[in-house]
Amino acid sequence: MLLQNRLICALRAASHAPASTLHLFHLSNAAATATATATATATAAPSAQFVVEDYLVASCGLTPAQACRASKYLRHLKSPANPDAVRAFLADAGIAEADIASAIAADPRLLCSKVDKTLTPRVAQLRDMGLSPIQISRLVAIIAGIFHNPSKITRLEFYISLLGSYARVETALNRYRFLLSQDIENVVKPNMAFLQQCGLSEDDIAGLNLRTGHLLTCNLEHLKTMVARAEKLGVRGVRPSSGMFKKALIAVCSVTAEKLIAKTELLERALGYAEAKIAVSKLPTILSMSEVTLAHRVEFLKTEFSLEPSYIAHRPAILTYSLERRLIPRYFVIHVLKAKGLVKRDIDLFGVFSQSHEKFVQKYLHHQ
């Protein structure tokens, strides 16, 4: 009964309290509630996470598709700290932003590199070899993982010595990305020794390496097989000791044995057996052309220009010229000039086709 009376008194006192007191009471309760809610929300909300794919797109310049592929190798990264350090170092070393992006897309592990233990000494090696920042920049974009594989830098130094300059090596690397993948002592040097036994000089080998990287990077037995094929290509001087042998070797390196046979048979059908042998022996690299192109040009020269198979066979370079850009335009220029009596009717077409553009214009257009 005493407790009941006290509660009644308390309620009456509250009902007669000033409005301001009640307002403050409610504000106090609302603030406390808001603070408690905010604290609970902050505690429950997860902290901002490092999303690799977003970082690769926003900070590294990769496309979403590239970022998706690259992120598979970077799932363990929890923060941008090391990737940022790598990118900053590469930029300070003079490597272009686009080349950094290409390097990361090709080798995402680059972002996990240790700046002090890996990148700094590798860049120093390349600089000691005489490479400029621009050259290093291009190299990083061309060869994935160049910083993670010290042996590739050693091989690069070997090829610079063989080819005579980094510029020539870069040309070879753009054509054959695998050039630095093979062991120098156990693969490249034995191949060089064999080619020298065949009569090729070191300069010859260097020149061939610019045309086909397979010569020095394939296994020795395969190289011997290609040399044997080159020797069988034609009847005129295609021997290891001849200059023509280099062209034959380029031809057999560019196609499979099956394709080589198919193209040889195509020429035999189009020109005749003897004429095909002559054509191949004089210019073995015509076998590097596609079968469709080769067949179309032979047929066009025979039917549209009325050239005899023997004429084509003894001048096989004519098959390497573009129909649309050289052969057809020049043919019709000569045709018109003949009709007007401005050139001899027995003019040699191959002489017309083989001239440079400047000489052709000067001789047949400006002087008419």
Rank of each mutant, 00 (worst) to 15 (best):
V280P: 05
L74E: 07
I134K: 13
L365W: 07
F89W: 01
L233Y: 08
V298T: 01
V187Y: 03
E221L: 08
G243W: 07
H23G: 02
L283M: 12
D116S: 13
P108A: 06
D348S: 10
Y331C: 06
C112G: 11
A58W: 05
S242T: 15
H367G: 13
V227G: 09
S254H: 13
D348P: 09
S242N: 05
S113H: 15
A141G: 08
D116C: 01
V298Q: 03
H26G: 09
E291P: 08
A65Q: 12
S165A: 01
D348G: 03
G234K: 07
Y311T: 08
T264C: 11
A230T: 10
Q362A: 14
D92H: 10
P18I: 05
R175K: 15
K282C: 06
D107I: 00
R236S: 13
R297Y: 05
K189I: 11
P240Y: 01
D92W: 06
E265D: 14
L126S: 00
L2D: 13
S15N: 11
D116I: 11
S161D: 11
I160A: 00
T118K: 00
T212K: 04
V343L: 04
L233G: 02
L223F: 06
K277F: 10
D54M: 02
S281C: 03
S59Y: 12
K259D: 15
A58Q: 14
C112R: 09
K224N: 06
L110T: 08
D348Y: 09
L90G: 08
L260M: 09
K302P: 12
V298I: 14
G341E: 04
P18E: 00
T39F: 03
P108V: 02
R345I: 13
A34K: 05
L349F: 14
R69C: 07
K263I: 02
I104C: 11
E157Q: 09
C60R: 04
E299Y: 06
F158D: 05
P190N: 03
H367V: 11
K259E: 14
I142Y: 05
A313E: 05
A317R: 14
E53V: 05
L337A: 10
K189H: 07
A144W: 04
L162H: 00
K224T: 02
L131A: 01
T21R: 09
F25W: 10
S20R: 09
S254N: 09
T33S: 08
V238G: 09
Y273P: 13
K263F: 08
V57S: 05
F305G: 03
H335Y: 14
S71C: 05
L260A: 03
A339G: 09
H296R: 15
A313S: 08
D128V: 11
L110V: 04
L216H: 02
N29C: 13
E231G: 02
A144R: 07
S28F: 00
P64I: 00
R87G: 03
C9V: 11
L365R: 03
H26K: 06
S181A: 14
K338D: 06
L267T: 08
H366L: 15
R269D: 15
A48H: 07
F158M: 00
K363M: 09
P284G: 01
L3G: 12
A67F: 04
A257H: 11
K247T: 12
